[in-house]
Computed example of a mutant assay.
Amino acid sequence: MADTTVAAAAEQPTFKHADRGETLAEGRADLHHPEPSALGLGPGAWVALAMAVLIGILIWKKAPGAVTGGLDSSIAKIRQQLDEAKALRAEAEALRAEYASKIAGAEKDAAEMLAHAKHEAEAIVAKAEADSTAMIARREKMAQDKIGAAERAAVDELRAQAADAATRAAAVLIARNHSAEGDKALVDETIAGL
Rank of each mutant, 00 (worst) to 15 (best):
A150Q: 02
K62V: 09
G69V: 02
A150P: 00
E35C: 01
A7W: 10
Q161N: 11
A66V: 06
A170C: 12
E140W: 04
L95D: 13
G65F: 01
T167M: 11
L24E: 11
G105D: 15
G56Y: 07
R168P: 01
A52M: 04
G148H: 09
L39G: 04
D30G: 01
A25L: 07
T5H: 01
P64F: 00
I103R: 13
A8Q: 07
P13R: 09
G65N: 06
T167N: 14
A126S: 14
R28C: 03
I174W: 09
D109T: 08
M135H: 12
L71Q: 03
M135I: 14
L88G: 14
R96P: 02
A106W: 09
I59S: 11
A63W: 11
G42V: 03
A50H: 04
I136C: 01
G65D: 12
W60F: 10
I78G: 05
A66Q: 13
A126M: 05
A45K: 10
K127E: 10
A63M: 11
I147P: 00
I57V: 15
L186V: 02
G69T: 00
R28F: 06
I78K: 07
Q161R: 14
K62T: 11
D19Q: 03
G65Q: 11
A10N: 06
A163Y: 07
R168D: 04
L158T: 13
